[in-house]
Amino acid sequence: MNQNTVIDVQHVTKVYGKKTEKQYTALKDVNFKVRQGEFVGIMGASGSGKTTLLNILATMDKPTEGRVLVGNQDITKLDGNQVSDFRAKQIGFIFQDFNLLESLTNAENIGLPLTLQGAKKRKTNELVHQVAGQLGINQLLDKYPVEISGGQKQRVAAARGLISRPQILFADEPTGALDSRNARELLETLKQVNDEEQVSVLMVTHDPFSASYCERILFIKDGKIGEQLEAGDQKRSEFYQTILNKLGTFNDQGEDVDVI
């Protein structure tokens, strides 16, 4: 495996339903690699399998066939405490609906992964302040999630995802519940962290604007990875246009198929 590769997805297939029942294939022989420090987007219509893929990469689900290598480990074979350690140390996760605990302060929410790992309070506090400073949310630390805006909540969630300095940050429609200004700010932040920390970001989205922050976009359709787009030397606004054009051709194709 290449030194630079952080995720190596090999022949991943996911079939739902028991053999005796009606089966549904969500992923069909998916293969791709993600380099260290890369910002990758996964785009696709609802039901295309993008969430299933993300769930498998984040060890929330297991593939029916194939393997996923992160570092030198096959993460589909992890069990018990290995899974916990992997989730706690190697990856971070941002959800569409934030998933912050309303009963804890933002600082406590950010520190939660460390708390769950049994880290010392002083050490946790130190790291919370560090990551909060980086994301510019120091002034929010003593507040509760109900007291802040959606955009701020997602920043807190991002801080939680980043606190253990993971190799990979998974984001499932992180801008789905945000207005355009907040969405832009969050994406800028993700990009900044991606650049500074060399964290690989894997973002599932169906929003072309969000996708335009990525370096590379994988299009997933009916469980298969179809085409890829690379930003290359394009400016963000240019890449945005490229994505829109690409999506346009998909829709045309879709209509053609429907008509036939």
Binding site: S84, D85, R87, A88, F93, L101, L112, P113, L116, Q117
Partner: peptide, 16 residues
Amino acid sequence: HDYGLFMMLGGKKSRL
């Protein structure tokens, strides 16, 4: 849901 989130954030089963 909360317990699921804890697991997702890397809480060990023993601690949970």
